[in-house]
Amino acid sequence: MAGSHNINRRDFVKLTTVAVGTVIGAAIGLPAIGYLISPALRAGGKDAWVSIGTLDKIPIGEPYAFSFTRTQVNGWERTATSYGGFVLRKSEAPEDMVILSSRCTHLGCQINWHADTQAYVCPCHDASFDINGAVIDGPPPRPLDVYTEFKVDDAGNLQIHVKEG
């Protein structure tokens, strides 16, 4: 039976060492990877209706800045994150308005309204957007994000629908 199935002692030990090592490596390595990426796999995406102001205090024809804070549990701590945006009422009709997020679509800095140039300007990389959020100049790949879902409740408060990423 001295055929091709023979394996010498040294090779057997080597093979066994490699095999056992691989199993142990996987048994420890995979949980280790899971441990590191665990927070990235959390389900997020809570949504809520947030009140951003009373309708009759919002002027017509010029952007009205608003901001709100949302808290979230991250690990062992509650983190408060601020969000902001601008409401532009185009006429008396409560539904005739554009609500823009103030988060620049380039790399996430906060834009500001410059009344003299009639543009939203991002301080980080000199991006500018027009009053409706379209890109005028600079690096942003797309117009400002718009809060499309909004409503005015019975007390006259303007509410927007916020989805957390």
Partner: peptide, 13 residues
């Protein structure tokens, strides 16, 4: 506490 209950395999590490 978070390592023990919130993180995958945190109890193991």
């Amino acid at each position: 506490q978070y390592i023990m209950t919130g993180v995958s395999f945190g109890w193991l590490i």
